[in-house]
């Protein structure tokens, strides 16, 4: 991992000693960026399928003669090809949730552990300004994890409705067999409407997602934003120690975990209200 050399005038938080942790494995990063690219392409082409442009007077598009004569055809073709790429990427990431490292696993997304549920509440308080510090995390914070579950539900809806619309073009065989029921349930226009609506929900998610990534990065100075390119986050030793002890405690058998647990109020305080790291 690259050594970070600080050159700008440093604030207290920045000058903290940092530990570089390898968090996001290659498949996690690759599927992330494939998703970003394909959602971008699918949203642009999808928008034009929903509101087709009218080329009343010209057969020329972008200066290339004849292109406009198959404009929507090309847009739809692009949408379909990208849809397959997107679907494969989503399935790959889902599978990786069962074989990947600790930070890619399914239990990062569903708050099955008690300390993750606690962190989720802290995170909620942080976002609603009832708390100054976001609880430190190596992987996803549990609230974000839940947001990704919601996102994947939207993906599933988009994939099922998308393939149901795709199946309309086939008389028999796999596509109508596998996805025809979606159309029979809601009727094709209903499926279209949902497919259209969910695009905007995904866009809404993206707005929130990019903002929180930047916000938390500014808070933690952990290189969160660049971590989805490099795979590495830089955390303070104190944060890492705190997380490691939380995780170790969570791995203990239930009885010992109970004995070791501090009274509720105190545990709260220990786990982050009073942090060893200076706030900026």
């Amino acid at each position: 991992m690259a050594t970070v050399v600080q050159e700008e005038p440093a604030t207290a938080a920045q000058t903290q000693r940092r530990i570089n942790l390898f968090v996001w494995e290659l498949p996690v990063r690759v599927t992330h960026w494939v998703n970003v690219t394909s959602i971008l392409i699918l949203s642009i082409t999808g928008y034009f399928i929903a509101s087709p442009p009218v080329f009343a007077t010209t057969t020329t598009f972008l200066g290339i003669p004849g292109t406009a004569t198959f404009m929507l055809g090309t847009i739809r073709f692009t949408h379909f090809v990208t849809a397959f790429v997107f679907t494969i990427s989503v399935l790959y990431r889902l599978a990786w949730a069962f074989v990947g490292n600790q930070y890619a696993r399914w239990d990062q997304f569903l708050p099955v552990r008690r300390y993750r549920r606690q962190d989720m509440r802290r995170m909620l308080r942080y976002y609603t300004f009832f708390r100054r510090e976001a609880p430190p995390q190596i992987g996803h914070n549990p609230l974000a994890g839940m947001a990704y579950v919601a996102l994947y539900v939207l993906f599933a809806v988009q994939i099922f409705t998308g393939f149901a619309l795709y199946a309309l073009a086939f008389r028999t065989g796999f596509w109508p067999f596998a996805f025809g029921w979606v159309t029979h349930l809601f009727g094709a226009p209903g499926v279209r409407m949902v497919h259209d609506l969910v695009m905007y929900l995904i866009i809404a998610f993206t707005i929130h997602h990019v903002y929180s990534a930047i916000l938390i990065d500014m808070e933690e100075r952990s290189g969160l934003v660049s971590s989805i390119v490099t795979g590495t986050k830089a955390l303070t030793p104190e944060s890492v120690a705190q997380i490691t002890s939380q995780e170790a405690l969570a791995r203990q058998p239930r009885a010992r975990r109970k004995a070791a647990r501090l009274p509720r109020g105190k545990a709260e305080a220990d786990a982050g209200e009073v942090r060893p790291v200076d706030g900026q």
Partner: peptide
């Protein structure tokens, strides 16, 4: 407390 920027960063595998 404008500390001297530290150049020593540790690298650890996140896998535990």
């Amino acid at each position: 407390t404008i500390a001297v920027p530290t150049n020593e960063t540790q690298t650890t595998e996140g896998q535990s």
